[in-house]
Write a protein that binds this DNA or RNA. Structure first.
Lengths: 252, 252
DNA sequence: GATCATAGTCGTCTGCCTGACGATAAGCAC
DNA sequence: GTGCTTATCGTCAGGCAGACGACTATGATC
């Protein structure tokens, strides 16, 4: 690819991923431990350089597969397969965000159902799901009492932006179903909302809302009792992607 | 700035601007005529390279001043001054979007009140406000019966995304006031909504909604009769940036 | 000045949606 | 069966939006 370095300043372009899931009723993000400077040993968001011949979305999907094995699907397609939802989040390009060189990072947001375990080159110690509060709070204590250092680079900001995007987007879209397996119950979907928003929702009103919105949920006919209690109907995500009127997030 | 070209593929990074305004009851965007290949003579969105020492937002603000003379203000600050609202829109990085080289463009969205006239190096023929429908429709006829060619590069897509962002964002935020001068009437604000959404709104219900939302509008005490008819109260934008419950966009 | 056209502003009414919450159903553990 | 858990259906009141009537205050026109 010919270019004249004097005509424009060269940048490195990367994609960083905010991969969110809900596990044990908590909103968790995927973090990887940096093996090299800068920020060696610190936790960071997964990501990497965009290759010369790939689109930004392709690069994000490739990184997602490499880190989680998840297959991303088109954001405009319904979430039928087991793939994760993937969308562009925002781009971060502060001149000093990477001490080595000028790096512009196109952050992407991925929403995935609960997965067995992260895989990062087979090294179980170098990737983990961590509750977002734990990753965002400064100076707190992480798992195993380990001192939780802030995320590397500006990744705390990127994660915060991704979490905020997810929190607001499940209000008016069916995106919360991306956190659920293919078949799920109304209660499981409600627990997703409760975990992402950090609030308690009335089960009866929630049930009325989601089952009363045409095209949002499609009953599969089956039932399950995996949550204990009375068996619940199983649903799949319907074709509707927009929720109108939106789900209302309660005031704090 | 030291870097090793063999370690990562170099990219050119640009900012492109979707500058929107409302003039003569139509949503218009700023377009500039390209003076050099590729797409020489075609209309495009204003933009340019990001400089090595500036942030993306700084680059966008600089381009905005160069093209319109508008001073951008912080998106989190209230729209008090005469500056335009400026926010990041999305990033476009298809490998083939620029035939010359690999260019990643961080598009920004600017909303401005109606301005006298665009200035692009004093050349009145090289920049203009055009209704977005005219810029987005392919093969139609523009001003002066001129054959309207599609915008250069992927700028039609960028413009469409920017318009959609503006259309949805005025639903739940006070962003529509960015299209108005410092002092404006309820009717002028309503005409902004009507122009951006392309629908007619009931003046009485609109008045009830905007005046009944605390912190949205602040009366200045003055009145004006510039629209003809009964004099209308003048307002400034209040501190509230979020509209809850949102303004509802009527179905088509 | 009377009349008209134009815009702005205040009210009313009805229907829909939400929040609060009671009641019932259907599993499991003991 | 008793108790516990979760799911699901119903009821009721309040808030808000859409539809629209009524009145007000200016400039334009006769």
């Amino acid at each position: 690819m010919p270019y004249d370095p004097s005509a424009f300043p060269p940048f490195a372009v990367t994609v960083d991923l905010v991969v969110l899931t809900v596990r044990r009723d908590a909103l968790c993000a995927l973090a990887v431990r940096r093996g090299e400077p800068p920020f060696q040993g610190r936790w960071a968001l997964p990501g990497g350089f965009v290759r010369p011949d790939e689109d930004l979305a392709q690069a994000a999907a490739r990184e997602l597969v490499e880190e989680t094995g998840l297959c991303a699907h088109d954001p405009d397609a319904p979430a039928q397969d087991n793939g994760a939802h993937l969308e562009q989040l925002a781009t971060y390009g502060d001149p000093k965000r990477d001490p080595r060189m000028r790096v512009v990072s196109v952050a992407h947001l991925a929403l995935a159902p609960d997965l067995p375990a992260p895989r990062a080159g087979g090294d179980a110690n170098s990737a983990r799901w961590a509750p977002v509060e734990e990753l965002l709070q400064r100076g707190g204590y992480g798992r195993d009492g380990e001192q939780a250092a802030p995320l590397a680079f500006d990744h705390a900001q990127i994660l915060a932006d991704g979490v905020e995007r997810a929190r607001s987007k499940i209000e008016y879209s069916s995106l919360a179903t991306a956190f659920c397996p293919t078949e799920f119950t109304v209660g499981e979907l409600r627990r997703v909302y409760e975990a992402v928003w950090g609030v308690a929702l009335d089960p009866r009103n929630f049930h009325r809302k989601v089952t009363g919105t045409p095209g949002f949920l499609v009953p599969t006919g089956g039932t399950t009792t995996r949550q204990g209690g009375r068996p619940a109907q199983l649903f799949r995500a319907g074709g509707a992607t927009l929720l109108n009127p939106p789900m209302l997030r309660p005031e704090v």
